[in-house]
Design a protein around this nucleic acid. Sequence first.
DNA 1: CAGTATCCTCGAGGATACTG
DNA 2: CAGTATCCTCGAGGATACTG
Lengths: 256, 256
Amino acid sequence: MAERPEKPAFQARARCKSVLSGVIFLLTLGPIALKTYSTIKTYSLLLDSSSMSRRSYRQNCALARANDVIGDRWTQLLIRDLLIAPRRFNELQASLKGIGANLLSSRLKELEGAGLVEHGTPASGKHRYALTARGRAIEPALLALIRWGLVYGPDNQPGDHHHDDWDLLALKALFQPDRMAGEGVTVQFTDHEFSGWMAIADGVVTIGLGEAEEPDVCVATTIKNLFTGPGEPSGYLQAGDPETLRNFMHSFAVRV
Amino acid sequence: MAERPEKPAFQARARCKSVLSGVIFLLTLGPIALKTYSTIKTYSLLLDSSSMSRRSYRQNCALARANDVIGDRWTQLLIRDLLIAPRRFNELQASLKGIGANLLSSRLKELEGAGLVEHGTPASGKHRYALTARGRAIEPALLALIRWGLVYGPDNQPGDHHHDDWDLLALKALFQPDRMAGEGVTVQFTDHEFSGWMAIADGVVTIGLGEAEEPDVCVATTIKNLFTGPGEPSGYLQAGDPETLRNFMHSFAVRV
DNA sequence: CAGTATCCTCGAGGATACTG
DNA sequence: CAGTATCCTCGAGGATACTG
């Protein structure tokens, strides 16, 4: 910062109005980037108004700026849960074991202020938090972190908290279109305490909690147990073809 | 954490020996994952011995575990700098404006303990920190975060700290193989205070600081200025073909 | 249920001085 | 230059009680 010592008092206010090199940079790079310009503008207004992290790295670097938004403790895990389904406050608090109500409340407000989360809208539902397009756009990055964590991260420890729905996202992270045989498939997982589904269509994976509309395959177990448990996968079949299930399971691997 | 009050004293030790569902999960998913097993084992030993984050989320979720390793403040930015080049302690401290010497030292030790960074080895060089294979493996995730940050992150602010080498990584994040025309190209950037290069070969991008071996194109400006500055890009050409430069610049865009 | 308000602790992390 | 050692602050974030 020493290279710009003039006008230090004005600096804080100057941050609200500046023209932004990040944007300009993208604008020169093609029509895809152009599309996002108006969104970015809205965003910067939201951010500047109140919730700009009081601990910004102040680095002109996209990674640092991403971390200014989603780098705080719990934030990525919160987004993870919302990537799986819209949630109520108490559902989130139960899932993020150890987070305080006040901290959860404050994280949600920050993400709302940054335009990643919305709340109580027709789209999200009353008393439900859901990701906006901007929030969902972070999914590829989180899936990449999940892949790294699966292969290189520390080991799971006995006693660690676990939710079966997290495995929906982990499985999505491992999907490889080129390993996919067949057109598409919808698989329903139903276990004692878990119900969720994954649909693959046109090489795109969709996941959700509860019951799928028209599942091709239904298995009576969790994702984890299906892939790593003792018995034959087909032993869990409740409906559908063993071959279809095998093809489905074969579509996932670690991309290294 | 209240759900497991029994044997609290034993828990810390029990964490060292467990068989790990994350690993088993991957093992069932194919030969690629199998390859990494021995690495993972080594890693867990390193981690358990000392530097397991005292603030683990304790969630059996790959994203949470990734965050246990690289979720601390400064850690991702440190890895970013090492993705660009091996660095000395003081270089890192100068780049990560605002980090204290003690904190930098402690972050480096944590990453070394976790097997992402090595130091003073023949590969890294004396008094130089470099990424291990495990550390480099996080690059795709950081590039995805960079893409998000470029499009959806907060705006750059006047007075923000900046290094031109960061743009090497940002540019790499925007590379799109299918937009590439021609076989491959090496571009040298040389400016007042910056010297670095990018090579594209077989759809793979390599970057580095200093002078490239055999650049096809040399421009006398920074990446940022080349893409977003006023003048015609070809105006910065010192060596090489304007057409080659144009093709190079056209290979980058935001993947949305 | 969906939060807000208050209080308090402790440790991240910043500043500084010092050493090999 | 490459760190280590010490001290100190302040704010993240945990606990708890309370409200609409």
